[in-house]
Design a protein around this nucleic acid. Sequence first.
DNA 1: TGAATACGTTAACAAAAGATAATAAATGCT
DNA 2: AGCATTTATTATCTTTTGTTAACGTATTCA
Lengths: 196, 196
Amino acid sequence: METKDLHALRAAIQRFILLTDEEWEMLVPDLQYCYLSRGEHWITEGQKERYMGFVLEGDMRHFYTRDGEEKTTYFYFENHLVGSYFSAINNTPSRLTIEALTDVRLLTFSYAHLKSLYDQCPKWERFGRMVAEYLAAGLEERMAGLLTMSPEERYIELLQGNKHKILERIPQHYIANYLGITPVSLSRIRKRLSDK
Amino acid sequence: METKDLHALRAAIQRFILLTDEEWEMLVPDLQYCYLSRGEHWITEGQKERYMGFVLEGDMRHFYTRDGEEKTTYFYFENHLVGSYFSAINNTPSRLTIEALTDVRLLTFSYAHLKSLYDQCPKWERFGRMVAEYLAAGLEERMAGLLTMSPEERYIELLQGNKHKILERIPQHYIANYLGITPVSLSRIRKRLSDK
DNA sequence: TGAATACGTTAACAAAAGATAATAAATGCT
DNA sequence: AGCATTTATTATCTTTTGTTAACGTATTCA
């Protein structure tokens, strides 16, 4: 396992909480590399996937399937944690699929192991709390945007905000899903805006 | 402080985690009653409110203000925790207002005290993690609904789901906001559905 | 490199939602 | 009880979105 990769993961964790070397070492034995090719599914709807991942390299998306249609609702980039978090928590089959948009390199660890860290060590429990709070805060903000802004306003916000990575790297029809509209409608919004 | 009220709060907390009497007693000294009249604001946008509440009696809503319009995005009922959680976490001014829809009786405790419980006691930290996870899971589910379903489908789901309390007790124009549409549009959806 | 696939735009039409205003019914309050 | 306010519906008109399909371009992959 390359030290650069380990450092990247540790740095990501330490954006939430500082770990002693001993605390960090509690996680390391459970880490594994996972390599995905573009288009490959890491987590598949209906299955009980029990791993969390950390994106070392590449981009991913997750989507729900409704009436045979894929609805992409989130993207993952380098240095982000990825997983079907809620199905892991509740130990239920995943309702979403997580797919590699490019070739992807992950570090993975089992959710079961993370839970045992919660039991063994208050610092890891705190990490869990802070991750969940961070996640909830992000979801609340995004949901408020969906409820209080029009699709066009949401697209403008995406243009101006700190989520530029999404626009640069992701096909537009996935972005349309992310905004809650169809690809055709997003194309029209872009036309409207550029005509001004 | 009435023991019935204390029991209600303890039971709500213990839906997440069992507490010993000693652990429970760590919270009690910080508890205070708060009484609100119908229409009164408990937490006001722009202010740094630092209290969490537990609804003993009554209903509340929270809303964002955009262009002078109130957009109601959530409701609180008896036996639920309430607070501008994210502004408390980040120690920033609240972006939303929380209002009493009826006369309300709350038990409150400061977020600062809760944080000190996190420091003092791993069990409380775990409680914090589990609340945040519960919150995040609920937000994820609601957001998925907003992104993958039409307003009409969302209304039907609300009719059929386990959120009946919302429909029974809450004025329809607030429910429209909650669904992400205007009151006029919700009225039309109801007409469409009843015409079948 | 060549063929298949994926992607973005545009058009035409239907369906739905937003905005505004008028009305009627229900509710709250003194 | 009576008056003001709140709430829900309905109508009209405008705007936006969804749907389907066609088209051209870009990309992928064998």
